[in-house]
Design a binder for these strands. Structure first.
Length: 289
DNA sequence: CTTACGGCCTGGGTGC
DNA sequence: TGCACCCAGGCCGTAA
């Protein structure tokens, strides 16, 4: 479910209520998605949430001890496919598949719910936090055009794979990849190395537009996604290709197609996004010649 | 460096 | 009503 716009929306909701709160207790259900479950109860109670932010699809909670020399920890949360985080009254009914309860010092709770448990939760030190987050690629909304373009030059992978690769850009997932490629009118099977500078320019702009608009509409709710207040997003109403197989392209009227590209379901307009023929990168061409 | 594939886990939809 | 099957917004490890 959650890609950059959804995680951003969740984080904005959490930012309104969490900073300054102290965690008083952690209760656990199933823990197979938590790197070190015992560490949660060991390190979190008594610590105060200093900040909440997003890096790519990760939610980053920085926690400080109540005395000055206490070690700082970071709680890193990834929502996977079906993860949800909400805050609610401690007495609120418990949704099925809720596996982590963080009791807060104002009598409320932050709860983590995840049907499929593809999410992850880790306690990190400041050093390991920076090492982990440093593996990620560019923030697609902050990258300059030059930085963005450089990530695709010479890459022989398909655009679909590159856009989904968190080491290239951090935060793109299947929905926003397809929506961005449609707006840039680029076929998901095209190779990074074969894009013209005009196409890279259009792609950069399309990615920013799609993500910005999706954040404004508080994300896409296809099935499970809700924000930190339990509200659904509305960007799914603006999808132009995603899950529109067989429906008319809103630009040209052709039937939207679905194909597996880079192992993932991909939606595109066969007329607006021309499929490349026998692709070869420059290097392969040179080899053949 | 790259792709392809299976696996993690549960639930919803479809078709018989 | 049951059941088999396919699909799902993410990501990792393995093999080729």
């Amino acid at each position: 479910m959650p890609e950059l716009p959804e995680v951003e929306t969740v984080v904005r909701g959490l930012q309104r209520v969490l900073p300054g709160r102290r965690i008083v207790e952690v209760r656990l259900g199933k823990t197979d998605f938590i790197e070190d479950p015992a560490a949660l109860g060991q390190h979190l109670p008594g610590r105060q949430i200093a900040s909440v932010r997003r890096t790519g699809k990760f939610i980053v909670l920085d926690l400080v001890g109540m005395n000055r020399d206490a070690q700082q920890f970071t709680l890193l949360i990834h929502l996977g496919m079906t993860g949800q985080i909400v805050t609610c009254a401690a007495a609120a009914p418990i949704a099925p598949h809720t596996h982590v309860f963080f009791a807060l010092d104002d009598g409320r709770e932050m709860r983590y719910t995840d049907i499929r448990r593809f999410g992850q939760m880790r306690i990190l030190t400041v050093e390991t936090r920076d090492a982990e987050l440093g593996k990620l690629g560019l923030d697609p909304l902050e990258a300059t055009e030059d930085e963005f373009v450089a990530k695709f030059l010479g890459r022989r992978a398909r655009l679909k794979a590159l856009l989904l690769d968190q080491r290239v850009l951090r935060g793109m997932g299947n929905i926003y990849t397809d929506e961005s490629l449609f707006r840039a009118r680029i076929h998901p099977k095209r190779l990074g190395a074969n894009l013209s500078s005009d196409e890279l320019h259009k792609l950069h702009r399309a990615v920013r537009e799609v993500l910005t608009e999706a954040i404004r509409l508080r994300g896409s709710s296809i099935s499970d996604y809700v924000d930190a207040d339990g509200q659904r997003g509305e960007f799914q109403l603006r999808h132009r290709v995603y899950q529109r197989e067989g429906k008319k392209c809103l630009r040209c009227g052709a039937a939207i197609q679905r194909a597996i590209v880079a192992g993932r379901s991909s939606y595109f307009c066969p007329k607006c996004q021309r499929e490349p023929r026998a692709q070869s990168s420059r290097r392969a061409k040179r080899k053949r010649a």
